[in-house]
Design a protein around this nucleic acid. Structure first.
Lengths: 165, 165
DNA sequence: TCTTTTTCCATGAATTTTCATGTTTTCCAT
DNA sequence: ATGGAAAACATGAAAATTCATGGAAAAAGA
């Protein structure tokens, strides 16, 4: 098992080699990219783009999100997301309903078909996650996830959305 | 200070709320995006795109990298990187030299101008990183970085490059 | 109430990225 | 050696993303 407490000497004051090899933002981006790449094959095998999968995942366990919220969750700009959602609506994966509370908003919800696909992919994703975290052991895995959540909580999104995003 | 050892109860068996809120790949992507966004304003103030900054950062502390390696480091596809490097060459930030060892490769190196800009931005980046990690304390920060490096080491890049990426 | 300002989303234009493919060089097995 | 397969990169066409902008609804102020 990987023992995070004994990884290298002082990983912070990185004195040698490429700059990026000790740079947090790079490590996060690289880890994100590599961890996701494997699963994204499954996603594309389902006929979805990565962005479309992110939308499905973001809507899983929710009974509707606005375009703006989805853009933040899916890490894209709002115009991008408007167009992705339109494609997904044409494919019968989501439906767009004018929200009751605020008629400016477009509320996006999973259709039955979309929920089926989302559930299937999410289950797959969780199995993949388990495999990824297995070498770390339960405690270190929880530590990692906790710290990522802390990082996220400490850095609010660009346009402060109602709550804390 | 954030105490990662007491963050929530069991962050793994996430039973409530949106699927993504407990999903490692999402947390990595979201954290990466949010941490970087702040600094990317500095980058764009320097007249660089994010991808161009990634190339500069990847070349910092190196005396030349191939197009393929840079594509991996900068998290883009090879054709994208070829074009970005051409723009950067036109701007006088990098130079492309035929590598000695393998004449198929294009070796990319920082020019004096490029190195100046890269050094300046990297210094800025490290100050930013220090601020980001400060709430975690030295030990937890080292733990986080160590685990990210482990994650990366455990998941090799798509097309196995000579070494270990 | 009636502006004035802000928020939320859609859309066309421009940019960026990616896909598909071709060329050149290297590697490997005869 | 040599012919075939694989690797590295460039490039044109296609697709995706982003920028700039506009309209409609809500919020804020006078």
């Amino acid at each position: 098992m990987v023992d995070a407490t004994t990884t290298g000497n002082d990983v912070l004051s990185e004195a040698s080699g490429r700059f990026v090899d000790g740079y947090l933002a790079y490590l996060l981006a690289q880890a994100s990219s590599r961890i996701s790449r494997e699963f994204h094959r499954e996603v594309e095998a389902s006929g979805l783009s990565v962005t479309e999968w992110r939308v499905l995942a973001s809507l899983s366990g929710s009974d509707g999100e606005s375009i703006g919220t989805l853009a933040q969750l899916a890490l894209t700009k709002q115009p991008t997301l408007s167009k992705v959602v339109q494609r997904m609506e044409a494919d019968g994966l989501v439906e767009r309903t004018g929200a009751r509370r605020d008629r400016r908003q477009t509320l996006v919800r999973l259709t039955r078909k979309g929920r089926g696909l989302a559930d299937s992919l999410c289950a797959h994703a969780l199995r993949h996650q388990q495999a990824v975290l297995e070498p770390f052991g339960h405690d270190n895995a929880a530590l990692l996830i906790g710290m990522l959540k802390d990082l996220i909580a400490l850095h609010p999104p660009a346009a402060p959305l109602a709550d804390g995003g």
